[in-house]
């Protein structure tokens, strides 16, 4: 940033831009402006007068504070409590994921094992029924078109 020599022109330009309160002026030029104002009181007072008047008007614009409902909506949207460090949280998420995966894998394995154990007996029973009563099978086959037409 360019630091400019403090003279009345620069002083007036700063008042024009930042207002009449030297505390709001750029930090880099504040001290020089104060010294200049001490030495040239009449001229700087005139430069500050208009700026101070506008500052007073601007301060009449007041925004009401946020209401309870907005505050609570914002707070409710915040992250939920966790006493774990980020690393522990990552490890916890991994464990939960692994746990769910493990449960699913166990369920699949159990289903497969049950199928393998039960299938031979069921097949044997089905064969026994079919083998034992071929007349029933033939009768059912012959009946089917009639059954369909009834539906």
């Amino acid at each position: 940033m360019r630091i400019m020599t403090m003279d009345l022109k620069r002083f007036a330009a700063l008042a024009d831009a930042y207002g009449g309160d030297l505390g709001r002026w750029p930090a880099a030029e504040r001290d020089a402006a104060r010294q200049f104002a001490d030495l040239n009181k009449d001229q700087t007072d005139r430069a500050l007068a208009g700026a101070t008047g506008l500052d007073a008007l601007l301060s009449e614009s007041v925004v009401p504070p946020p209401g309870f409902a907005l505050r609570e909506r914002v707070i409710l949207a915040a992250p939920k409590t966790s006493t774990l460090s980020p690393a522990l949280r990552r490890a916890w998420r991994w464990l939960v994921g692994a746990g769910i995966g493990g449960v699913l894998a166990t369920a699949c394995a159990a289903g497969l094992a049950t199928g393998i154990a039960v299938a031979p007996t069921a097949l044997a029973q089905a064969r026994w029924i079919n083998d034992g009563d071929p007349a029933n099978e033939a009768a059912r086959f012959l009946r089917e078109p009639a059954d369909l037409s009834e539906g």
Partner: peptide, 23 residues
């Protein structure tokens, strides 16, 4: 602290920043 869900930090940040942002 707010990022870890600390309720006091969350309330403190809301108290300090919400009026400024709203304005």
């Amino acid at each position: 602290m707010a990022g870890r869900g600390d309720p006091r930090a969350i309330r403190a940040l809301v108290a300090a920043k919400l009026p400024r942002l709203l304005a």
